[in-house]
Design a binder for these strands. Structure first.
Lengths: 335, 335
DNA sequence: CTTTACAACTGTATCGTTACAGATTTTGAA
DNA sequence: TTCAAAATCTGTAACGATACAGTTGTAAAG
């Protein structure tokens, strides 16, 4: 057999030449196949690490169809990416000890969220996909289930389809938030909720309503804005609500960014946190705690979400059933 | 020629069969090669779009060595990823209209920043790389230059090597910041600077010193902490500085997160922004403006940085010289 | 001394693409 | 009419890996 070119990266051929074995043998030795002798395996492994052998991804992918890629599908809206970035950390932490690479598949604001999913499915760009902003009847989930393609969702669906997900218990969050406000003597409570088409809108509202019932408070309507509105819109709506008669004395925010706008609205109306109004907010970074420690915060751990979703998708790729791969993280009071 | 399997994705073979042409002809027609007839090209293109043909990336990669991948090398520290995430948006915006995919190559806190670069170089995982946290004598830059591998850096180097970069003019930022503080009657100025081993530390300090000279102010030493310290450490150091004699009456922060901690330190010392102390800060999101509008802010556009770097790396891959691919963005006063 | 069984190893074909070196047909000049 | 030059088109090999169907050689069983 001719010696392989020495200037480029080592391949199976390189190792085969160096050990005097066949290419197939080397390949099988490195995968620890049962029909290769123990001593041979040892020799092959030694040479492989010596020369710094890494299997050529294109070769593997072409032959086996396995891409060794997980795709994170991201909306490019700034607001959202801010939340999602700790997820990248969590996903990377898990993928680091595997063969998988993380590729970011974006979709732009105006375009169909199905597009990136279709792209991955049609081109076979990845072995598995992670999506967020999950809807109750999510067409992306329907499509991937139909094609039996491994994926995980950040958030749950309501379609009677069983699939891997990770979710934060927003029902519990809102319920606890009401309790905390009532404990501080607040009775008229306003909720800045997620956009109605996302699944966790229902969860958060359900927890909110249940809390109102159980703890004896009433809701102040706040339906003109949601977490997808601009901070300026939220601030303005909040200020108006605070100036109206029957203004709320307790506010719950579904995100840290929303809370910032709400605080601005409250203060623009001449009111003071903790004195006139109490507020409970989910937060993803610590800014809020530093600048308005009066706000009661609850951390949602997006990094954990990334880790759980990465583990779930890999397990799904390896054939585990969707029903074993569903996790929920519970809010723990923060202070 | 046998018809290709109809259940899977269309390949050149599929189109060759449908058009009755050879595989080579189809390949060359789709690349608009000069030795293919105009009518043939038209037919091939028509059929290709009809069946939804996408070239198989593994095939191309194996044959040509081109990965069509840009790798963004990211530190997984939460603080840093928070800043870097808008860069992902900018990069994606540019890559969207190309064949390139974006893969995130992480490195963990304790490990050698050279590791991910070596990985990409050794495995040929990408056609180009984007790095940040650039140092004056950056070993990653040296390595990639030596191997003649396309890359772009967020931040400049000081090694006499010409390579693509995008940078924010931190010298100008600090200079202007001093001017603004002096305009408000402040004379004793403290700077929360980046860690000393990053290149932009020099730039920011240089602008700071020059501003002090030109506008007649003095520096209050603040060398125990930098932007890489925890917010708690920064807050504490700031409070101590504010309580010391000859306390500063002006503060400059190299990042929005740092500013939050500084504000907390100032207020913990019983001082009030705008009244006792003025502050100028770079910011990446709007929180600071909402909660402490007294802070004078200057936006650094990381999304723009992502766009510029993506364009630069692609141009470098296409053979353009590094010297044409260096851009600097200038701070524009924000309000 | 066969035959069978098993352990250990190997060659060939193939995934989808493109570089390269032809092959075929058409055109046009002599 | 002939033949070189264009204009089009095509088969083969190769990139690196693996599935599959062998091929050895040795040891146990008959």
């Amino acid at each position: 057999m001719a010696p392989p070119a020495s200037d480029s990266r080592p391949t199976l051929k390189t190792i085969a030449f160096m050990t005097g074995l066949g290419i197939t043998t080397v390949s099988r030795a490195l995968k620890n196949a049962p029909d290769i002798g123990a001593e041979t395996k040892e020799r092959v492994r030694l040479v492989a690490t010596q020369v710094g052998y890494h299997p050529n991804r294109a070769g593997v992918r072409l032959r086996t169809g396995k891409t060794n890629v997980i795709s994170l599908i991201l909306s490019l809206e700034e607001e959202i990416i801010g939340l999602t970035s700790p997820m990248v950390v969590g996903i990377s932490e898990i993928l680091a000890s595997t063969q998988y690479h993380l590729v970011i598949t974006p979709y732009s604001v105006g375009s169909d969220p199905l597009d990136p999913v279709r792209y991955v499915l049609d081109t076979g760009a990845a072995d598995g996909v992670i999506i967020s902003r999950t809807e109750p009847k999510d067409p992306r989930v329907a499509l991937m289930m139909e094609r039996n393609f491994p994926f995980g969702t950040h958030g749950r669906t309501e379609m009677g389809l069983v699939h891997p997900y990770h979710d934060f218990d927003n029902e519990r969050f809102a319920y606890d938030a009401v309790r905390r406000l009532v404990e501080r003597g607040r009775r008229r409570i306003m909720l800045l909720h997620p956009p109605p088409y996302l699944t966790y809108h229902m969860h958060m509202r359900a927890g909110f309503e249940r809390g109102l019932q159980d703890f004896g408070a009433t809701a102040v309507p706040f339906n003109n804005v949601d977490l997808d509105n601009s901070l300026a819109d939220i601030r303005e709506a909040c200020e108006a609500a605070m100036r109206a008669k029957d203004a709320p004395d307790g506010v719950i925010s579904g995100s840290g960014a929303g809370a910032v706008a709400l605080v601005a609205g409250i203060e623009a109306a001449g009111l003071k946190l903790a004195r006139d109004v109490d507020m409970v907010s989910k937060q993803s970074n610590d800014f809020l705690q530093w600048l308005r420690p009066e706000v009661i915060t609850q951390r949602e751990d997006f990094r954990l979400a990334g880790r759980e979703l990465a583990k779930a998708v890999i397990a799904r790729i390896e054939g585990r059933s969707g029903s074993e791969l569903q996790t929920l993280s519970f809010p723990a009071p923060q202070k």
